[in-house]
Write a protein that binds this DNA or RNA. Sequence first.
DNA 1: AAATCGGGGAC
DNA 2: GTCCCAGATTT
Length: 355
Amino acid sequence: MQDTITKPLLKWYGENKRVLPWREKKNPYEIWVSEIMLQQTRVEAVKPFYERFMRELPNVAALAVCPEEKLLKLWEGLGYYNRVRNMQKAAQKIMEVYDGVFPADYEALKGLPGIGNYTAGAVASIAFCIPVPAVDGNVLRVMARLREDGEDILKQSVKNRVEAELTEIMPAEDPGAFNQAMMDLGAMVCLPNGAPKCEVCPLFDQCLAGQHQTWTEYPFKKSAKPRRIEDRTVLLFLDGAHTAVRKRPKKGLLAGLYEFPNFDGVLSEQEALEEAEKFGVTPLHIQALPPYKHIFSHVEWHITGYAIKIAGNDVEQEGEEKAGLIFADAKTAAERYAIPSAFAEYAKYTDLERA
DNA sequence: AAATCGGGGAC
DNA sequence: GTCCCAGATTT
């Protein structure tokens, strides 16, 4: 039973595997960084972030002591920002508890912040040749189709069962290749949307969904709860040289990142001007900006934007803080502060008055 | 078990 | 619009 899957799979992998930056080397740090970035994130999206991150922070020691602002800039636009904060906590733990050496142990890896079953399996198998499975969305899809298993793949019980099944058939020689082969198969052949390429699949002969052409039914996922919609109003303060940003709270959505001042609900021009005055600036003119819809996983922001020209003498110096706002040159702000996409959308209007 | 946490590409 | 991506953590 084992060979009917592993043999053709590994043969296919040897001939078709993708060339990826993190596959060139096998040191645990490089594997780990790639796996964290790849959580819920497509390979093509990760590539440029990975190259830059490895250049700036080439080892555990460098990551452990990196200032948070720099860390967030390196992650800016990648999303799920707790990933990088957890990664730094893990780096610090490795320095302190493991004397700077990555633990070559599955359970020890799972004990590091941000490393769950999947990532522990991936790092253990790829970097340390430990025969443990790495079950991600690709693997769950491949397995559901192979078995025509209609259970909800989001259920923990299903993940546990798939892990157990794979543990039985894992080859001891190169478990990393086996795990990556399953994932490459899911990403390149057993496609999530549209028709899978069953005609080139090395596992077609043992795939029930392939044989019965029932692949549209697998994997099954309980439909997600609809996102709630929130109205927000963003204010872009402009005095000809500066714009205003502020740091978001330490917890919750986009924690610790920077934003343009914004408010719950849809503010009228009058209300926006009143809010502006509370910051101690003198609004001279207000202009509506194009509305923008930003979609997160579980919430959707419908954003109303205003550009508000303020008196030039409101801001006396670069980087000045005033009522919780940081006034800075737009270009400087972009270089210094991590601004997530929802707000970066409005950064393109910072030179509005010069137009 | 359900909710939270980003962003973007493919259809 | 929908789906889903080399998921983990908190509630």
